[in-house]
Write a protein that binds this DNA or RNA. Sequence first.
DNA 1: ATGAAAGCGCTAACAC
DNA 2: GTGTTAGCGCTTTCAT
Lengths: 348, 348
Amino acid sequence: MTSENNQHTGHPVTMRDVAEAAGVSIATVSLVINEKKNARIGDDARKRVREAIKELGYRPNALAKTLVSGSSKFIGLVADAIATTPFAGQIIHGAQDEAWRHGYVLLVANTDGNQDAEREAIAMMLEHKVRGILYSTWFHRAAEVPEALRETDFVLVDCFSPQNDAVAVVPDEVQGGRTATQLLIDNGHRRIAIINTTTPSPAHEGRLLGYRQALEAAGIAFDPELVLDAAPEQEGGYDAVDALLASHATAVFCHNDRVAMGLYDGLRRRGLSIPEDMAVVGFDNQEVIAAHLRPPLTTVALPHYELGVKGVRLLLGLDDHRDDELVTVECPPVLRASIGEREPAGTR
Amino acid sequence: MTSENNQHTGHPVTMRDVAEAAGVSIATVSLVINEKKNARIGDDARKRVREAIKELGYRPNALAKTLVSGSSKFIGLVADAIATTPFAGQIIHGAQDEAWRHGYVLLVANTDGNQDAEREAIAMMLEHKVRGILYSTWFHRAAEVPEALRETDFVLVDCFSPQNDAVAVVPDEVQGGRTATQLLIDNGHRRIAIINTTTPSPAHEGRLLGYRQALEAAGIAFDPELVLDAAPEQEGGYDAVDALLASHATAVFCHNDRVAMGLYDGLRRRGLSIPEDMAVVGFDNQEVIAAHLRPPLTTVALPHYELGVKGVRLLLGLDDHRDDELVTVECPPVLRASIGEREPAGTR
DNA sequence: ATGAAAGCGCTAACAC
DNA sequence: GTGTTAGCGCTTTCAT
């Protein structure tokens, strides 16, 4: 019955229908629906309206509402790679949760890094009069801001404008590197290697800087011999084993969990065990890997979910920020079992 | 200049503004924008309108358009877990691409499996007059269809209604199981084990059935001793090694790539190598893992992207389907290096 | 070939 | 307390 007269089957139910059914004017219906404070409606009228709504299966038309009020409840999210990793998913998730909390809905578009797709996506969002746009990338990097973005409010998520002329929120790579290294230092290690990526990037530079800061704070001299490079995936970690062993490090900070996974493999083939022969800490906290290696990998998490949340908050003006600097989100440690005894048992 | 007069700064530019600037009526503007066939507009008028649009930085208001036309260009996608795995991301990606192709935009909502969130999400979509809704889950399973869904067109993606009263598209688990097993058979194996999950599910039953079908087709007797159970993750695979070895299998079909990863580990600790001592094939094609194990894992892919695409196509009525059966999408093999020589070099 | 005007579903003054 | 009415930005007859 209820679903007999809705927009799916037959004629869509409008406010006018409800008004007629309830024997009141459409203004009255609007008032009770929006529960306007100072508009006092008779109890019986209110009741009749409520019943009519239920009876007819009426759903307000959000689009019409938007038209008159002038501002929509959409937030656009354009991503360069929704599916490549779980990372983009987490950004979406965070953005969606926070948007939701404030009555907004996410309009999502994937661009695959394609310029045309990007232009189209942004145009479409603009035409839908979004409240603003989140422009996100799946790994932390500099990104040219598409011109059209400037037609509305926007914030960059997990990327930043090289000209530093846009609000952006990114992970705190330096602090992350510091944290990872500190974990190792706290466990008594002094000879700590770092396996970094081969290409420059905020992660590359930031984490290395953090590593150096942590060493310095602990009074450990920086030794360039302990800085290794490797392709940022399993193969790179595997291949780095020889160099790592040659460096006589007792602990290693890997650029990411995938590298750590490859390293585990290489170490094991040489009959070495973790953390006894080598303490290792990763980065990213890529669940599928880190949580299930033997032993489970202690790592530092990339806060993608929080990046999404923060992006929305900045967009809506809920959080303040200084115009001239990047907003930064902390990379928290995730303690598991790859660096030794000082680890609390089972932390996520 | 262009961006001086748009909706961001100051008064939004409307069709009326364009009309005035071009010295024509708003109807004319509408006509040139929509490139109406039979409405013949003077070349100069057309040109003036085009220029005015550019000059003012005019963007059509998609919402107003929707209001009058009655049907929106939104497709809703409600997912139970956007971020848990890359899987949901792929569904979104596929859906988004296909929707885009037909001029539709994705409205995404995450529910975390929470009933209230789900209700709210659907309500919001209904209020935005979506063309229809894709209801998706991150792993293949039966799912109760929320009542509100029936107020609009919808299709279930990666899940299905237990009452079989809804259009649904799911992966072909049986064919997937057959394919995986066949890969092993083709490589000369006769004693093939299967490590299945411990809990019932379409994947559990389907893949086992496929396994049996492949054996039967090859004239290999089914041996219950070769059916092992394990938790569907690395730990399960690792722990299954003893039983696997005891079964004297020469090859094994793992329920998923994570199980295979654990198995690799366990096998290696016993000094066994892949594929020489044991051929293994996985399932899911979880990139981070499968492509980077040593040796790279041959597996069968779960077609999440295609599921998303197909969902949109069914929703829009682009593809036909029989009302009384699930629409099924093929799980293609992904050949790498874990089952032996007969594998073509480096696929995907 | 182009303009006037009605109306999509709704909100918000402003009457009564 | 409740109804009337004027738009919100746009499409679409129907005139001209």
